[in-house]
Design a protein around this nucleic acid. Sequence first.
DNA 1: CTGAAAGCGCTTACAG
DNA 2: CTGAAAGCGCTTACAG
Lengths: 352, 352
Amino acid sequence: MPEKKRNGARRVTVKDLARDLGMSISTVSRAFYPDAVVAESTRSAVLKRASELGYRPNPFAQSLITNKTQIVGMVVSNLTNPFYPEVMTGLVARLQAVGMNVMLAVANEPEKTDEAVDLLLSYQPDLMIVVAVTLSSQAHEKCDSVGAPCIFFNRLSADGAGFGISCDNAAGGAQAADFLIDAGHRHLLYVSAFPGASTNVERQAGFCNRAVERGLARPHVIEAGLFTYEAGYAAGREVSRWKGKVDGVFCANDIVAIGFIEGVQERPGLRVPDDISVVGFDDINMANWPSHRLTTIAQPLSEMMEATVTLALELARDQKAEPQITRFAPGKLIERNTTRSRKTKERADVGG
Amino acid sequence: MPEKKRNGARRVTVKDLARDLGMSISTVSRAFYPDAVVAESTRSAVLKRASELGYRPNPFAQSLITNKTQIVGMVVSNLTNPFYPEVMTGLVARLQAVGMNVMLAVANEPEKTDEAVDLLLSYQPDLMIVVAVTLSSQAHEKCDSVGAPCIFFNRLSADGAGFGISCDNAAGGAQAADFLIDAGHRHLLYVSAFPGASTNVERQAGFCNRAVERGLARPHVIEAGLFTYEAGYAAGREVSRWKGKVDGVFCANDIVAIGFIEGVQERPGLRVPDDISVVGFDDINMANWPSHRLTTIAQPLSEMMEATVTLALELARDQKAEPQITRFAPGKLIERNTTRSRKTKERADVGG
DNA sequence: CTGAAAGCGCTTACAG
DNA sequence: CTGAAAGCGCTTACAG
């Protein structure tokens, strides 16, 4: 039996429901819009019967009229950093809860990002959420021009345009510097990840500037290049071969820090935290595993995700015209086993 | 300026394009369908102008007619297992490449799975891909009944229905048993994860049955309960306190194995691999990190993903009526640092 | 090979 | 408060 739909179960439409209820389709339709004017008794009758019959308005037909799709286009990359699966899951779950659907595109190769955005855009998402991706300015403009404003989550857009939800990374960097300096470290190093990422730039600036403010030499910087374990590991190996002394390290994020620690310990006799203290950023789950026990600064993730959903809802309703960047204060530094105090007795006494 | 659309850039429609080209909208429309009969010169003219003007057929309007959406609904959970971000990324990228869009739902709480599926279904996906989720049979039936067949990736459906892409987990389990037994282990243990998962059941059966075939006592089984680091860790701690001797362990997957190893070593003097060998399953990236160097069996992930995309394409075209399960042979066991031979001299001699 | 017309499943002014 | 009608952007028999 070819030429037959996979199965007979035709979807029930407004027409069916209207006939069943002996009403016009206009009335039935209105019942699904809280703001539409319709007798309360009519509405409840419609809704009741609809759920019995399993009727749901066809979102495609709806969007043809309303120009709203309830779709959010989400562009992600680099899910090898466990921070992002956490973000994705949290965001998608929250968005689902308010009735929005997430259409996903992955942009692992930067060259393909624009293409991925295009594909997404053909479904006319009400807005875009960009996670851990650097959008070309053409792509960004295109989104805006078809009416899908972009929210940049965590990493902000290169041109500073669009909506942004992030944490105060500079303050986080400063916090890391203060912690290391207070604990007696004098030879600081920043392990940079992707140099084009706002998160990286801000954490580095916050860290280095604070060190200088506190009277130290400007910290060394080594460029790992990416927000990955492998990049951190390679940086760690390199540092392990340095002549110059380094006693306190702040890494661009946790996964880089974890890689760095393993890389730096490749040199026999070089130990974390005995010889070098290492601080990460994000507080991913793994940072608390017994094998890592990484000292780190937590991102205020729930707040950031809530704010994103709230903003998404506003944007989907065409409000909130003015793009703006919202920053949340990072959490307190969580001291675990990859840092230790280097105070001499004397200094310790002075410091209280 | 309220009451004004976010910006003027109205999307260009067939009508616009037809007028511009001086053709009928029927002709223009046909140009986008390779099978439609239209003069080649006409088609290329249309396509050329379309790309100049940035025209793309509105997929919503299209799907209203064709009943095809090019959307695949993807249900995932447990992205804390790094295996799944790898899967998701790979699958989404490949699906994108063939022009399909992925609509994502996360089902972290089992109770909410049906709801998530419902939301997805309202967008009439051509098919569903279910990853690491146990679907209720109602949910599964509902998908089928609205014409969205399900592909279960890796973990098969509880009722064995639907399409499935998996690896031969039983063979993998047997492989683990052979490896451990050949290396002189005699006291085997299987660390079970989620007992309802087909992957878990099959790996366990393959492992235990092979051990018995080879003349050993049926291996012990400890139920960690979930496919997570934490579950593996807890199981490891418990095993570390056992009186009975265990020398060879096969864990339901890598992340459980990594947790198990750290948990079991909590007991002073108990070492992996010196006292206990541990084998995982999946060969996630992390298994090869210096801190883990986990002996494991790789999944034939690329093959599995390719097969999924091929099947998805067929299903989207209404072919392939008969649900079936496809299994790929697992990779060879990769020996790293969490296992070692326990052969006595004598036995080693005998074994060659 | 091309065009005019019907219709997919909805929403929304417009009357009443 | 409700209904008839127009129309969103497309595709696809049906004629020619």
